[in-house]
């Protein structure tokens, strides 16, 4: 029974602790994400949201156990897609929208990267889903903040992954773009994808999400928006 439960969950976090020197960023965190769930991860600055995401992706050392579909995340990396913060990269990079989305198809460990017809289809499909058809040959430095965010989401979609981890995809975008991004996320959820999304604006979490993970002083509370944030969805 226990093993069935583990496999039915897209993500399982057991007794996760993350330390930076003497500082404990996350302490004994336990949580799970069911397949097809879309959950907002909220918390104040420095509460450990990014540390949690980095631990899931093995980008920072941690204690405890993290599994995706019952396996270590490194074993199922091809099924995991990550959307980092927009500010994390140099947008003057000499690349087009399509170049960046195509990166979603590159596989580690190959002598050289070749683009198959299947890769080309996945890239085109991700571009269409993210509404970037008219911008695909545009240099990334010419895009607005919202368009840049959609490029990151399209790159993640091109991986055709099942678990999406997103670090503040709504940061610095206007309300119209926010709705457009949420439509994309909802369509991913309808396709059965699982999404964990860091969000820092509680009013938007209440508007868009049903389930929430709240981090406070390195500890995690999970549940419905109503139970955790004390407010109903609008």
């Amino acid at each position: 029974m226990a093993s069935n439960e583990i496999i039915s969950n897209a993500l399982e976090i057991h007794s996760l602790t993350v330390r930076y020197g003497n500082t404990i960023a996350l302490h004994q965190v336990n949580a799970s994400l069911k397949v097809g769930e879309m959950v907002a991860l909220v918390g104040y600055n420095g509460s450990g949201k990014s540390s949690l995401m980095k631990a899931i992706l093995n980008l920072t050392p941690f204690e405890g156990r993290i599994t995706a579909w019952g396996k270590s995340v490194s074993e199922v990396l091809s099924k995991v897609a990550y959307v980092p913060q927009r500010a994390a990269v140099d947008w003057k990079y000499p690349a087009t929208v399509k170049d960046i989305v195509s990166m979603g198809r590159y596989q580690p460990g190959l002598f050289t990267q070749r683009t198959s017809s299947e890769d080309a289809k996945a890239v085109d499909s991700a571009i269409v889903q993210a509404g970037l058809q008219d911008l695909q040959h545009r240099m990334i430095g010419e895009l607005s903040g919202g368009q840049q965010q959609r490029v990151f989401i399209a790159r993640a979609m091109a991986r055709q992954a099942d678990l999406f981890l997103m670090d503040e995809p709504f940061a610095g975008v206007d309300m119209k773009t926010e709705d457009a991004i949420f439509d994309i996320l909802q369509s991913l959820q309808k396709q059965g994808k699982t999404l964990l999304i860091i969000h820092h604006q509680i009013d938007q979490v209440i508007k868009y999400f049903e389930q929430v993970w709240k981090l406070q002083e390195g500890k995690l509370e999970t549940g419905s928006v109503e139970a955790i944030l004390g407010q109903r969805n609008k």
Binding site: L57, S74, L77, P84, A88
Partner: peptide
């Protein structure tokens, strides 16, 4: 372009 992302995907 994105070292963290590159690491995250292997």
């Amino acid at each position: 372009f994105d070292k963290d992302w590159a690491r995250a995907v292997g």
